[in-house]
Design a protein around this nucleic acid. Structure first.
Lengths: 273, 273
DNA sequence: TTGCTCCTCACGTCACGTGAGGTGGC
DNA sequence: TTGCTCCTCACGTCACGTGAGGTGGC
């Protein structure tokens, strides 16, 4: 029989660990002095402890190990649990690997040319919800076109027509771009309306934007002339991450004080495949 | 300005998370109603939040992120921190990968032939401490030899001589094996003595066994005839793990009740390179 | 009056590390 | 009497999740 200190030293675990395993019922000492509370461990408990350490090393939690030992687990069950663990470990290993790749990519971006102040480029991948928007559109001949005058025409028309139909906006304003096969672009001005709203109009149509599990998003702060910079950053991010865009690209005008366009806050959204 | 619920929905984080970031001072809301305590967030805070999410995704802790943001970190510093993070992420990714390999290896062992009840084979890698032992040795012609009679001669001689010298054992008994270049084996019987003890004897010598950072160990329970099985398991483990043994192999007799050898507990130790 | 949104505690998570304060036997 | 080993609380870790119990404005 060994004292807890001796036993800990032999097994190379901490005394605290042995006490903890006692507390959770995983490895009660062979004997406890009723008077002093001193714990004593039998030499044979070293293999019990080693079993625990091996299972822990394989990634099982103490609760799982307790179950396995209490149940006197059979060989086949153990294999089953190990397969689960393997799947989990595979996932974790891949996750870590991908995170590592992201960190490395950041370093490349920051140290490479052209040097960028990276924290501005806070591209975030997140899900986006489905929204119902009332829209009017117009065609433009490419991304070099001037969109400002187009939107300048579209939004007043949209809001006027919605007012005429008695439909109230129920959320932010959207700008949508759809690239056609012939290179032309549908420029679409929209605004969120209630999902069950009906618009009785010949010029305004209702469009449902589907939810997406993953969209690359970037918040642009400032006027609409400088938004090309933000698009450039987002484009470069998409390319570097090896992602593919599907569907419309979206601009969500989260805050657009009419008197000062430099204070506008716009979220750019690219739905990812 | 958005309510906390709206802002959470836009950013796709939980309300609780926003409150937590407020609590730790990472992202206080743009305004708090003095009356109700209601938090309000400005649209522009979405990019602040996104910065936090990006840094978190790269593996920084909230405490680190708080520091980075408070300090208004420069580009070069950020690169420095990212390099540290990269090293850390590399380590973690490798660790996970190795753990995965160990799990997979276990599955192979358990499902392959010959099938083994794996939990018996609790090979544990741990450091071992330096010990000072008093020893006597004899030569044997190979691992097929009968060691029992050799040890049967050695231990009584060892303890008798130690008694004559007035040196008391200070720890467990050891059995050591040293394979020579010519294939012969030094069979050594030893017992731990105090590190500063001096033994004035022509037959017993003092030997210092160095500490090792990593040793593969296996606890054998039972008599010395069945110990070959344990050695076989340990050998197979070493081979499968691609490890190399250096120096003596050791048997530590942790518990050896003289009346019943089947209750003996012995730890086998192979120092790893 | 009933929903709705929001609020503040405060416990739980996982496997121990790390004091604080105290005790029995050499 | 002084070390030594051991004991039992109990807080802290990390980033929130999850109730419990309550409140102000439509």
């Amino acid at each position: 029989m060994f004292g807890i200190g001796q036993f800990a030293q032999i097994a190379k675990v901490s005394v605290r660990t042995l006490r903890h395993y006692d507390d959770v019922g995983l490895l009660p000492p062979a004997a406890v002095d009723a008077q002093t509370g001193y714990r004593s461990y039998a030499a044979s408990q070293l293999s019990a402890l080693n079993r625990i350490l091996v299972l822990k090393d394989l990634g099982f939690t103490l609760a799982e190990i307790t179950q396995m030992i209490e149940a006197g687990i059979a060989n086949e069950e153990l294999v089953g649990m190990l397969r689960l663990r393997r799947a989990e470990a595979e996932r974790k290993a891949e996750d870590e690997h991908r995170r590592l790749a992201r960190v490395a990519a950041r370093i490349d971006i920051l140290t490479g040319e052209p040097a960028m102040t990276d924290l501005e480029t806070a591209v975030v991948v997140k899900p986006i919800d489905a929204v119902t928007v009332a829209v009017v559109g117009e065609q433009a001949s490419g991304f070099d076109a001037e969109f400002a005058p187009i939107f300048g025409r579209l939004y007043p028309a949209l809001f006027a027509e919605l007012g005429r139909c008695g439909v109230a906006p129920a959320g932010p304003t959207y700008g949508l771009y759809n690239q056609r096969d012939d290179g032309d672009i549908d420029v679409i001005a929209g605004v969120v309306i209630a999902a069950d709203a009906e618009v009785d109009s010949s010029t305004v149509t209702v469009r449902r934007l589907d939810a997406a599990a993953r969209a690359a998003t970037l918040v642009h702060q400032g006027d609409m002339e400088s938004i090309v910079n933000s698009y450039a950053i987002l484009d470069r991010w998409i390319e570097q991450a090896g992602e593919t865009i599907v569907g419309l690209s979206r601009e969500v005008y989260l805050d657009c004080p009419p008197d000062d366009q430099t204070k506008w806050v716009t979220e750019l959204q690219f739905v990812l495949a």
